[in-house]
C-alpha cells in the first residue's frame, strides 16, 4: 500500500526535475546564441581569412538548423563536454571543478554560521515578542542585512587581520603553504587533513573563518526574520496551548512542539540562502582574493567567454534544482502529512 504511493511521488519528482532541466538547457542554449559575441571570431581572431572563418563556422555546426544545433548541445552536455574556455584554454569542466570546491567550502561554513545564529535568535525574538530582546535582535539582524558585505569585509580584514592578527588575510591559506598539499578533492580542509598537514589545515581554517562569518552574519539576517515570523504563527496554535496544559516548561513547549512545526519552512529558506551563497559571493571573494566560483563567473562575463558562461549558468540552475530536491526530501522527513 505504501510503496506505490512513495514510488509515484518519486516519479512525479523525477519528471518535474527533467522538465526543469530541459527548460534550463534551452535557456543556456539561447543565451549562447543571442549574446553579441561571435564564437567563430573569438576562436580564429580578428586577422583570420574568410576561408578559415568559414571552416570553423562549419566545424562548430553553426550552418546547421537551430534544432540540430540544440541536439548537439544536448549531446555535449550529456557527455559532460562543455568545450574549452577561451580565457584559460582549459576545458571548462576542469576550470569549474577547480574553483567550485573553494566556494562550496566558504558557502557551507557561512550557512552553518548563518543558520546557527539566525534560527535560535529568530525563535528567541518570537518568544520575547515586543520585549527588549526582540528589539535588540531586530537591530542586530538589520545591521547584518544593511551593511554592504565588501565594506564589512574590508573592515573585518583591517581589524581582525591587520590590527589584531587573530585571523588569516586574503586567499585560502598563507602564501607559504601553497602547493604543499596535493590536490585530491579540491576542498582544502579535507585535502590537508588527508595529507596529515595540520599546519596547513589550521592556516586554511584561519583564512576561512572571517569571510565565512561575515557571509554567515549577512545571511543570518534573513534567516532570523523568517524564523521569527514562522515561530509567531506557531506559538498561537492550539497544540501549543495543549503542551502548556500538559505542564511542559516554556522551553520544552517551544523547542519540542512549536519548533518541530517550522522545520519544513526553515529548510526551504536555508536551502535558498545556501543556493545564493553557492552562486557566488562575488564581492566577498573579491575582497578576500578567494579563488572561487564567483570570481570565475565574473571574469568569464567580462571576457565574453561563452562556453564557460553557459556552463556557469547551467551549473547555478542545477545547484538550485538539487537544493530544491533536497528540501523536498527533507519535507518528507520532517512532516508526516507529506508522506
Amino acid at each position: 500500500m505504501r510503496n506505490p504511493r512513495w514510488l509515484s511521488a518519486a516519479l512525479n519528482q523525477a519528471s518535474t526535475i527533467l522538465v526543469t532541466l530541459l527548460g534550463l538547457l534551452v535557456l543556456t542554449f539561447v543565451i549562447g546564441r543571442i549574446m553579441p559575441v561571435d564564437p567563430v571570431r573569438a576562436i580564429v581572431g580578428e586577422e583570420a581569412t574568410r576561408e578559415v572563418y568559414e571552416n570553423v563556422y562549419h566545424q562548430l555546426g553553426l550552418d546547421k538548423p537551430m534544432w540540430e544545433q540544440f541536439l548537439f548541445y544536448l549531446r555535449d552536455v550529456a557527455t559532460l563536454d562543455f568545450g574549452t574556455s577561451l580565457r584559460t584554454g582549459q576545458p571548462v569542466l576542469d576550470d569549474i571543478l577547480h574553483v567550485l570546491p573553494a566556494t562550496i567550502e566558504l558557502a557551507t561554513f557561512a550557512i552553518l554560521i548563518g543558520a546557527g545564529i539566525g534560527i535560535p535568535l529568530g525563535v528567541l525574538a518570537a518568544v520575547k515578542k515586543d520585549r527588549w530582546q526582540d528589539h535588540a535582535i531586530r537591530v542586530f539582524s538589520l545591521m547584518g542585512h544593511s551593511m554592504p558585505i565588501f565594506w564589512t569585509g574590508m573592515i573585518g580584514l583591517l581589524v581582525f587581520y591587520a590590527a589584531l592578527g587573530w585571523v588569516g588575510g586574503a586567499g585560502r591559506m598563507s602564501q607559504f603553504y601553497i602547493g604543499l598539499v596535493p590536490d585530491r578533492t579540491g576542498f582544502l580542509l579535507i585535502d590537508s587533513a588527508l595529507a596529515g598537514e595540520w599546519e596547513v589545515f589550521r592556516s586554511a581554517v584561519n583564512h576561512l573563518i572571517l569571510p565565512a562569518s561575515l557571509l554567515g552574519y549577512s545571511s543570518s539576517a534573513y534567516i532570523t526574520r523568517m524564523t521569527r515570523s514562522f515561530m509567531l504563527d506557531q506559538i498561537n496554535q492550539e497544540y501549543v496551548t495543549t503542551a502548556r496544559v500538559k505542564g511542559l516548561s516554556e522551553r520544552k513547549t517551544i523547542w519540542s512542539h512549536a519548533f518541530g512545526n517550522i522545520k519544513v519552512q526553515l529548510v526551504t529558506i536555508v536551502a535558498l540562502a545556501y543556493g545564493a551563497l553557492l552562486e557566488g559571493a562575488v564581492l566577498i571573494e573579491t575582497v578576500f582574493a578567494w579563488p572561487g566560483f564567483g570570481q570565475y563567473l565574473t571574469s568569464t562575463l567580462r571576457m565574453g567567454d561563452m562556453n564557460a558562461l553557459m556552463t556557469c549558468v547551467l551549473l547555478v540552475g542545477v545547484i538550485f534544482i538539487a537544493l530544491n530536491l533536497l528540501s523536498d526530501l527533507l519535507y518528507r522527513v520532517f512532516d508526516p502529512r507529506t508522506r
Partner: peptide, 12 residues
C-alpha cells in the same frame, strides 16, 4: 480543548 484538529501537534 475544543478541536482535536488543532489541539494535537500535527507532527508527533
Amino acid at each position: 480543548l475544543q478541536d482535536p484538529k488543532f489541539s494535537l501537534n500535527p507532527i508527533r
